[in-house]
Design a protein around this nucleic acid. Sequence first.
DNA 1: TCTCTAACTGATCAGTAGGTCAATTACGCT
DNA 2: AGCGTAATTGACCTACTGATCAGTTAGAGA
Lengths: 202, 202
Amino acid sequence: MKRLGRPPDTSSVQTRDRILVVAREMFSVHGYEITTNRDIATAVGITPGALYHYFGSKLALYLAVHGDTQSQVYEQFTKAIIGHDTFIGQFEAVLDIAYEMNMEDASVARFIGAVRVDSGRHPDMAAALSTHVRQRERFFAVMIDLGVKRGEIAKENRLVVQAYLLTVLMGLTDAVSGDHELQKRAIQGIKMAMRGQLVKTS
Amino acid sequence: MKRLGRPPDTSSVQTRDRILVVAREMFSVHGYEITTNRDIATAVGITPGALYHYFGSKLALYLAVHGDTQSQVYEQFTKAIIGHDTFIGQFEAVLDIAYEMNMEDASVARFIGAVRVDSGRHPDMAAALSTHVRQRERFFAVMIDLGVKRGEIAKENRLVVQAYLLTVLMGLTDAVSGDHELQKRAIQGIKMAMRGQLVKTS
DNA sequence: TCTCTAACTGATCAGTAGGTCAATTACGCT
DNA sequence: AGCGTAATTGACCTACTGATCAGTTAGAGA
């Protein structure tokens, strides 16, 4: 049984962080709908009511988790492409860092994949995340534009490349993210395909 | 107000089919959890109780929809690859037919994408669908094996190609499926990438 | 025509979800 | 020491979910 009232040796920040970590794990595995406040609270070691001391609603908690995760991801992505001055080099660097991050903490990639699904199903969530979506789009748009300027990508293929990147990254953060070996092979496949080395096409 | 009892001019098969169509549409857009029996019933024009005249449970309904959809998809896929005797030809044929089917009825591709997510989140559903998953895997495995025999795919790349196909198709049936233009470009990108024509790699 | 059954409604149930809130306890500040 | 506030519980509310079922009506077959 838990004692009533404020527990000893608790700082607000610590508990908040624990909630965010646990929530990301559970949201990423089971999704927004299936994960209940009670599930998260129990896993953290508190009661559902306490959640509302930190976050105004379940949705607010979800958005907080997303903010954390997204900024973490794109910080790493940005770091990864520094030092590569070709489009294909940058793209492969992004693939590699995505794999590494997934090895370290699978919940990150899993959550990003889950968000795409959940926000598609929850209209108000999609609206709240539109800013983040634009941030993501811009990241790759810049990468591609530089590739066009360098002459690595034909001007008329700009949108095609963008659509391809999107598709491939979506596929990667999908069910694949559970199986490290499969993901490794998928990344290898993406690299080889882009170099035309995957299948004979003559 | 609806009249009580059996309505005139109703054959069981008709209503059942309407339920399946409506359910696929709603499941594909909102997912398994968010879509309620009441939502489906209302859209069909019946009451939730009547659903249980045709399907034993919500899960059973979902599985029925999936059975329908999956067999429809792989019938088309199988037809599409007939007449192509190269791996890349078959692969591109699959991409093309996937696009065409999505144009005709977007709910099909959308549902396939949704199933992947929902079954990942609903353990009992995943178990019930394992047979279908194997069927899907086998389809592509055969395609790849033939490609290896013809010498189009290096033996050691078999698993890599398989992982790549999976990733790309997952990406395609994802959020992309809502935007036809985007999907068109993505498919073009996939084709060009596989031929090494998407970006300069020298 | 009479019956049996298929097709449905409407009321209803138990379970559970997100969310609220008064009460309780610990901590930081003066 | 004492007061205000931060952190948390536990009881509770309303809404809604999947599911059940007795009762009602239309049609098919003898």
